[in-house]
Amino acid sequence: MDKKLRLRGGISATLPPLLFGIGVIAFWELWTIITNSDPRLFPPPSDVANAFIDDPSLYIRNAKTTAIEMVLGFGVGAVVGIALGLLVTYSKPLRRAVYPWLVISQTIPIPAVAAVLVTWFGFSILPKVIVVALIAFFPISVSTTDGLVSVDSQMIQLMRTFGANRVQIFREVRIPHALPHVFTGMKVAAAFSVLGAVFGEWVGARGGLGYLLLIKNRSVNTDDVFAIIAVLATLGVMFFGLITLIERLVIPWHFDNRAEDT
């Protein structure tokens, strides 16, 4: 009954950012015409669009390479992040020993690590996957820990009055409670994984959008560079959207809250 309502909500939610985006692009186009700026420094959006239309396969092929690095790295990061979250929650000594290092690991500049990884593993896909995983695991492990720890203690008491054991409490209460938190971490990680893939490619690659960006930038093909940036952004948004879609399928109850008020 409120499907129509939600649809209208969807349009009213997407319309303002869409209009804003179109406005910015139009202003940008106009600006380059008025100021007569050098297209090698500041190409108008129409040039950028033409750059993409001239050779879409170039962008799509490299986007595929980058996407594979993102997805694989994210997968590894998610598995490691969730595992760390579980370990840190359930083992006090491990929490004491590991948690500070998790935080410290995030202060290390990723490009520095990426450089070492290329020395070790060469130009293969492996260093990129590792860099993405290094970026992705942290928000996921933090949010997983958060979710597992913040369970309503009375719900656990209730389970105990049923005579539930630890495994049952874990399965029926802790995991479902933690899932929305885990997904929040995964969405952050998904958005950052573009960054990881580009860094990984910058220090040594034979393909991918980050690699292409370096080459185009060196030859001052600024319109191509902007086209690559647009494709990278699209890639990030698509990945974020994919995780959001999976979230809706896995934890529908989390989104079904605002229904009928009886």
Partner: peptide, 13 residues
């Protein structure tokens, strides 16, 4: 059967 002050219905079920 123990019913506490809060209903403690689990939102995911």
């Amino acid at each position: 059967g123990y019913m506490m002050q809060r209903d403690l219905l689990m939102p995911w079920k």
